[in-house]
Write a protein that binds this DNA or RNA. Structure first.
Lengths: 224, 224
DNA sequence: ATTACTAGACATCGAGTAG
DNA sequence: TCTACTCGATGTCTAGTAA
């Protein structure tokens, strides 16, 4: 049961290679086996492992099986890609394009908790304006967003108050149109294409933004 | 002896992570073991495997060992990175910056062989000017060059004449300042930071180039 | 055709330990 | 301390085969 990520990684990579951009991969265990140069039995076993761990979902379909890689599965591949990027690339600025989205007011509540604020000052070097700017990331920047999510960033500890628990978050420093900011993710996040940005300034005012406006966020390395 | 690339890959990745940009990694098998969450014995074994296969070279140094990853070793990591890039990224143009270098006249001889010319026409869609433009790639584009080298490209078969053997090469289509061209690599190449470019035109004239001039080559996907 | 179970063959691991 | 060998335990493979 001691499950190395190894086989799962190579199998996911093979499945994604074979499936290309299609979301549904129709493939038999023998075909996968041939591609991976392993036995049909092992291919079958690896697929079951991926299923058990929630990396793929599957629909049996008479002769073959239609496999779809889950978000969790994709993150295994993207994580590896991000790792290699950190190891092999020189420090870079990551660029993310997105459109201003009306905030839900939720972010505002969270980041104004004292437990977070103190750490923002200490680790980011600024006390943010008490509100977040939400950016719906454009599809062209989706992979960058996934890479970012899979990286470690600047860690902000969670804490507990009388009434509830606030989870740990991670942040990355950057800028929007030259204004210093930080992007912020829950440490345990499910995938979302909305990026939350905090800054000393009220960016909506400073940049005269309205919903739908396109923005470029530059996030700075080092990313590890 | 059936050696999966698996362990070699993970070990190289760990070594490169631990070594950072340093070319010499001073590390004990126990330290590596701890990082990889394996036993000291396995770490030792993996290091020996890497040595045997020429992925690293090593100097025993009293207490520890100084490990250096070879070109062949780096290419394992870069290959994986390139694979994931192809799988995960949308088709992109790869940009390579380099400086014009005086050709050695060697490229001219090779590409003018009929066995190659016929295939250039067939697979690239043009008959190149009988000479190559050599670009010394700038360090900022080095990783891109390595990625390119590790990819498959458009395959050109080798052939044999009365007097000698001409090896297979691989090419990638692209452009320089809008002029269609192709970059060309020996299929079995050792690493070099010089890129050979062929084109229908005599690029040195068309672009009024002299040695040392900086150029941008855009290489087109798909890269698999 | 498939998927996937069983079971024996085979490979890999690490504790013990030598040098 | 180190590296790395031996060797028994444990894991992982695939041939055979059921469904």
């Amino acid at each position: 049961m001691g499950d190395t990520i190894d086989n799962s990684y190579w199998t996911l990579k093979a499945l994604k290679s074979l499936g290309g951009t299609r979301s549904l991969i129709s493939i038999s265990s023998s075909e996968l086996a041939e591609y991976m140069k392993i036995s049909q039995q092992s291919a079958s076993r690896f697929i079951l492992d991926l299923l058990r761990d929630g990396y793929i979902i599957r629909q049996m379909n008479g002769r073959k099986q239609d496999i779809s890689i889950t978000e969790k599965g994709m993150s295994v591949l993207v994580k590896e890609y991000a790792d290699l990027s950190v190891i092999l690339e020189k420090p870079i600025k990551m660029k993310l394009h997105g459109n201003v989205q009306s905030g839900l007011g939720e972010g505002r509540y969270y980041i104004s908790r004292k437990g977070y604020i103190v750490q923002f000052q200490e680790k980011l070097g600024f006390i943010p304006f008490l509100g977040t700017l939400n950016l719906k990331i454009k599809s062209g920047s989706e992979l960058s967003l996934r890479k970012l999510r899979s990286m470690d960033g600047i860690h902000i500890d969670g804490f507990v108050t009388d009434d509830r628990t606030y989870g740990p978050v991670k942040t990355f420093l950057g800028n929007i149109n030259g204004i210093k900011c930080a992007v912020i993710f829950p440490e345990r996040s499910v995938y979302s294409d909305v990026l939350e940005v905090i800054s000393v300034e009220f960016l909506r005012d400073s940049l005269s933004l309205k919903d739908g406006d396109e923005l470029l966020v530059e996030v700075e390395g080092p990313f590890n």
